[in-house]
Amino acid sequence: MKAASAHGNFRGLSDLRLVGRQIFYEQLSFWLNPVAAIFTVGFSVIFLVLLGATGGSSRVGSLGGIRAIQYYVPGFVAYGVMSTCFNTLAVALVIRRETGLLKRMRLSPLPTWVMLAGVTGSVLVISMVQVGLLLFIGRVAYGVVLPEELGALVVAVVVGVVCFTALGIATSTLIPNQDSGGPVVGVVFFVLLFLSGLWYPLKPGSTLANISGYFPIRHLMLATFAPFDSRPGASPWDWHDLWIVGVWGLAAVAVAARRWRWAPRKD
């Protein structure tokens, strides 16, 4: 059995190195297309700066009278994670499938799990860069109070990256061709984003909150806000919302596993 495992789809350390290499080349591909990279990473930052400049200092009564910027920073952390892992990745995967890049990977010895781990690792890096930028700008430009439990924020971001990557992959399998990728993903995402209270906190129990409560976007935003929540008795660890995000992630894995295709649709 030893020989079989040595030749099989998991070869321990050497495969982990291969994952590292994949992340490296994914990163190269991403950053060597600077226009796409800057707009992907910069969108959340620009939004934060705009909202911070126009209404960042107003107080939010429903959240214990904190400054709005304390709400926007974790909101855009969640937004950044979602747009990178869901929007950008779903569209990128459709392009890769339709242009034959996926088929080429399939015909190489690169195991599928290594390829997907490389993709996920790469969007995790991009998400972390965004989170770092958002916290930095929030702190320096608007005096945001950073969470005491940074670990809770990191966990929320990692769970969000993994689950929204799965959602991005699943969504890519539902999109028929590269021309429809951007519009489909953009509309779905922005509608949900609007419903989820990125621009203003939703009152718990309101109709909007109930509707958006079915979708994962709001739950990730609540989970990234929890470490910033300074109300007495509030826990920075929001397992309840992360759990719902996780269930969405699992559902996405099921869809992706059923519908995944390597070849262009036209084949």
């Binding site: 242009t99 890049l101 088929k103 015909l107």
Partner: peptide, 13 residues
């Protein structure tokens, strides 16, 4: 090794 037609290669690398 497999060489097929019409498979793209990462354009920015």
């Amino acid at each position: 090794g497999v060489v097929l037609q019409e498979l793209a290669i990462e354009p920015f690398l």
